[in-house]
Design a protein around this nucleic acid. Sequence first.
RNA 1: ACAU
DNA 2: TCATGT
Length: 223
Amino acid sequence: MAKAGKYYVVWVGREPGLYRTWASAEQQIKGFAGALFKSFATQAEAEAALAAGPGSQSSASGRASGSSQTSGRASAAKANPLAASNYPKGEALCVDAAWNSVQKQMEYQGVWLSSGELLFHQGPFAMGTNNIGEFLALVHALAWLDKQGDASMPVYTDSMTAMAWVRKKKANSQSLAEGRISPELVALMTRAEHWLQAHPKHNPVKKWLTKEWGEIPADFGRK
RNA sequence: ACAU
DNA sequence: TCATGT
Ligand SMILES: [Mg+2]
Ligand SMILES: [Mg+2]
């Protein structure tokens, strides 16, 4: 997670560009031979540095330490998502879920768009699914905002499934229907559906455009 | 196909 | 490559 308000420039890495969280920037440079990166306090500084290149830095930019790998992955987002004309303006909450296929556990969290600051984190939970995590994260954010008396703050998710379940106030989960979900999560799902039915006019839910803006700030990294 |  | 979903 970002320590409120930092901007990370990666000049050399798997996918060079501008990142809002250390988790996402680290993915680009960890284990990448010859990686070059640096953090900045403001967007303007970061954008200027990204455009100018690593050679323009007078001090303390990061260099890859030990490792060796040079391969990357196909480019997804643009190098500077913040420059996209449709990038979200103003404050918002961002949520995401992750599935740990090694530990077989799901977790989810919510962060502020502007700073990357963690607002909530739940889990890990056994016997879950990606979609159940995305759904619970989204409803958790909506309920939290309602409790604060904030009816206008938008909530971003990258999950079409979670958006559909919230819209219908019903989670169409195969795993749930077939009894593969833990009692704890079943209870949370039931509670979430009931909350939605009791609060038909919840805050606006918006789709995070990962292809245009890069990973949602609430993303967990490992993928 | 699209989103995870 | 697999699983969860619209
Ligand atoms: Mg997600
Ligand atoms: Mg993610």
